[in-house]
Design a protein around this nucleic acid. Structure first.
Length: 274
DNA sequence: TCCCAGGACTACT
DNA sequence: AGTAGTCCTGGG
């Protein structure tokens, strides 16, 4: 068990749509990471983390929840640039952008296309239960997300059996590309956002939105972002801007390299506050 | 039973 | 260059 300062908003961070495989408990959350299961509980001062695998835990947590980035400063900078977004920043104070493994993020967001959250979760759980490593934690069984080696042995119909529907062939092809390094997930770290976006969109099954989510949640490229209905609503209500291209122009001009973060805060505010 | 939501691709102009 | 139709699942 480790404890860290409770200086972030665990609930928003976990439930705001960036994480699919989590479970809400009476006193906290279970989250399934790449290589372990964690349980997070909290009081006013601390967040307590337990795992089936304690080694390196603090470092992994700090990395996954992006705890070492100075969000206070970023938020300060954004609110200096723009007053209108301030309520959203205050409301979502403590929301962190998670830092997930590229492989999992790519699979998750391909499945998410034209799909709803419960159905996405169902598919991810099926994939994990069938092909992932079983882990026992506090007398309960969990399944980690399958490795690239495991995934690359699946057929199109294996994917189909996990209820991914027409996305089966996309997953099959992309997993193969990753395995053969035709989709080089490591090279993306070094690309600028524009090139990375173009690179990802070349692969069948990855469009603009999916690519944006991958770059934001796996590569922490804060200047790329998906624009969904909640963000559109915010932009229309607050600024009277309706078209997506105009929204992109505007957010880029105002929020610059922090656009992805600003957008996520907007999304959380618009969707969750009254 | 049908209908709908939800991204990206394909095949058309 | 732009767009209608299509792919599948789960839920109303």
């Amino acid at each position: 068990m480790i404890k860290i300062q409770n200086n972030f908003d665990l609930k928003s961070t976990i439930t705001c749509g960036q994480i699919f495989r989590f479970e809400e408990l009476a006193d906290g959350y279970i989250v399934i990471l790449d290589d372990r299961v964690i349980k997070l509980t909290y009081d006013i001062n601390y967040i307590y983390i337990e795992s089936n695998k304690e080694d390196n835990l603090e470092k992994i947590i700090r990395d996954y929840f992006d705890l070492d980035r100075d969000y206070e400063k970023i938020i300060g900078d954004i609110s200096k640039l723009d007053k209108t977004i301030k309520p959203a920043l205050v409301y979502s104070k403590g929301l962190k952008m998670i830092h997930q493994s590229p492989l999992i993020t790519i699979i998750e967001y391909i499945i998410s296309q034209n799909n709803r959250v419960p159905s996405i979760k169902n598919s991810l759980n099926l994939l994990s239960e069938k092909y992932g490593e079983k882990v026992t934690f506090k007398d309960k069984e969990y399944y980690l997300f399958p490795s690239i080696d495991k995934l690359s042995k699946l057929s199109v119909s294996d994917f189909r059996e996990c209820k991914v529907g027409f996305r089966d062939k996309y997953l099959y092809e992309i997993v193969k590309s990753i395995k053969e390094n035709k989709l080089d997930i490591n090279s993306i770290y070094e690309m600028n956002s524009e090139d990375a976006l173009k690179y990802l969109i070349n692969f069948k099954g990855i469009g603009n939105k999916v690519a944006s989510c991958i770059l934001l949640f796996a590569y922490q490229k804060f200047d790329v972002y998906p624009i969904d209905t909640w963000v559109k609503k915010f932009m229309f209500d607050e600024y009277g801007i309706k078209e997506e291209t105009k929204i992109r122009e505007y957010t880029k001009k105002i929020y610059k390299e922090y656009s992805g973060l600003a957008i996520q805060y907007m999304f959380n505010y618009k969707r969750n506050s009254k």
